[in-house]
Design a protein around this nucleic acid. Structure first.
Lengths: 341, 341
DNA sequence: ATGAAAGCGCTAACAG
DNA sequence: CTGTTAGCGCTTTCAT
């Protein structure tokens, strides 16, 4: 058993450093905070003492004294369908990485939406989408906490929003299908109470309209983003007498499920059915036919949100919130084919 | 634009509450900390004042004064293959939820292993596996920080470990295959530098040995847990002159990939090949044939880790670390068949 | 360029 | 049962 010796937990304070360096604690504080006014000689003495004592300032004392906190709360709705997505993981990864860079502490807050969240000691908040928890955002804003909302674009709220152009991405995807000669194009949507799913559906409709294709209600299948419902939707879709030749699916995870169902039904992809997904989930690369999909810049969105929050937290004055809509990119792979001849 | 009025950020302190309630700040502090000794009448006055002033204590002042912190750092190696797994998400979810319950703040720390982590202001640490970052664990221990390691069972370290019986689970899985009459059983392993993958491989070997089946090197395929490598492994496996009739795959995600490859090769599951996975990833439920797998109690592991950490953080004395190995459960679905007849 | 001293908001002896 | 008082470790005027 490797028993590691604990260092005597006697915390070394700024005072110890000052004594060892032979200066006042004020000077030490100045060195810590990189004040330019400290004489080089003293700076070196202090730095030496800090190293020798292995001193590191107490963040609690710092925060008490300054009244500032650099803790960022990431609020994620603990909403099954959403939580289990590629999306959340990418977001956490992107945000976590950038918080590291900016020396921000990342506090994770999984919320069940109805409860109010404890914002004590928090310097800024990132809301990963707003799903039934708008009151939490408003509470943060009311407290004067710098807040940014991601994946949700709302002009009517006084917070920065960094979102993805879901409608635009969807429109491109469907346009692409049309350009391949498809006219009977179905859509399997996600949970329409999320802005992302609603936007994708809207883009689908917009593209049809612009191409003078009439939207058919029997070609639209609403799901909760789960593979289970995607499967059911696909089965129903395939049963249609006048089955579509192409389908735009609101997420890659669901698109993969649709591919499975289609193959089980003995139909070929893209021979009998062309499919476009949404996400650019790496899973889409495997399988017999690589999935054509809409890539959304999740990492970029995550990074932008931290940058923006950092800006909000750093600058003194009330800044105008920033509203950003990030563009998507159509990634053409193998799951769609040119129709007719 | 809904501009939310900010509350004047003048922080209300314990002193304001004391004044309004007509008691000393000590009494207010006692009420906050639920000391039983406060007279009911005063308690109510204080509570009233707190409500009226919307007072909530500064956690920084509390922590400065007590020298204690209830911030839990969750350290996750930012290791591609591992990070993108079902495992991490489940863990975060479980830990996040339980931290809520115990009123612990969850700080997320994605680490690249080589760097040292900043533990200032942290009350306890949970290491999500140890992959090349053992020095970080040792640093935490040296500081006297309560620490628990999950998914890694190490007798030789002075921290609590909550892990999963990977070897046992794997052994059961392979035994099951043997009981169905299989003798040519392959294994597609995960990244053997992780304890989990190594344990699963060991369980595989143990089961073969106990059943007097000789291990064949050409039946063992080592991967990094990625679907890409799983695909390659499966292709090679299928090419074997003396191809196996069953395969135990170290993760469900990889098992699904193996299923795809197998079907693409025109072989039937479980007709031509029986497959057992590991994880009980819900994705395994969909697709034409539900995947037989080994369920690991991830949420339970997550919860136990928080409970244990909370115990460590709460109790005063040096407590003996706890070593727990959680059992797995074989979930029999449709991907294996009885051999011979 | 540096230091003395007054807090930041709370807890914890120690009296009473 | 309650109040007084001294810190916790750092930042920040205000002098010097």
């Amino acid at each position: 058993m490797v028993r590691i010796k604990k260092t005597p937990s006697k915390t070394v304070s700024i005072e110890d450093v000052a004594r060892l360096a032979g200066v006042s604690i004020t000077t030490v504080s100045r060195v810590i905070n990189k004040f330019p006014s400290v004489k080089e000689k003293n700076r070196l003495k202090v730095l030496g003492a800090i190293k020798e004592l292995k001193f590191s300032p107490s963040i609690f004392a710092q925060r008490l004294a300054t009244g500032k906190s650099n803790v960022v709360a990431l609020v994620i709705p603990r909403y099954e369908g959403v939580f289990y997505s590629f999306y959340v993981l990418e977001l956490i990864r992107g945000i976590g990485t950038l918080c590291d860079v900016f020396k921000l502490d990342l506090l994770l807050h999984l919320t069940d939406a109805r409860s109010g969240l404890d914002l004590r000691g928090i310097g800024g908040v990132i809301f990963a989408d707003i799903i039934g928890n708008r009151h939490q955002l408003e509470a943060a804003l009311k407290q004067g906490l710098p807040s940014v909302v991601i994946n949700n674009y709302a002009e009517d709220i006084d917070a920065s929003c960094i979102a993805i152009d879901n409608a635009g991405g969807a429109e491109n995807a469907v346009n692409y299908l049309v350009s391949l000669g498809h006219k009977r194009i179905a859509h399997i949507s996600g949970d329409l109470s999320t802005q992302a799913a609603a936007g994708r559906y809207e883009g689908y409709r917009r593209a049809l309209k612009k191409n003078n294709i009439k939207e058919r209600q029997d070609y639209v299948f609403k799901t909760d983003y789960s593979r289970g419902q995607a499967r059911a939707a696909a089965e129903n879709m395939l049963k249609l007498a006048d089955a579509p030749t192409a389908v735009f699916v609101a997420s890659d995870a669901m698109a993969l499920e649709v591919m499975s169902v289609t193959r089980e039904a003995g139909r070929d992809i893209p021979g009998d059915l062309s499919i476009v997904g949404f996400d650019d989930n790496p899973s889409g690369l495997y399988g017999p036919v690589a999935l054509t999909t809409v890539r959304q810049p999740l990492i970029k969105m995550a990074e932008e949100s931290v940058k923006e929050l950092n800006r909000l937290m750093t600058l003194k004055k009330n800044i105008t919130p920033k509203k950003v809509l990030l563009p998507t990119e159509l990634i053409i792979r193998e799951s769609c084919r040119q129709l007719g001849g």
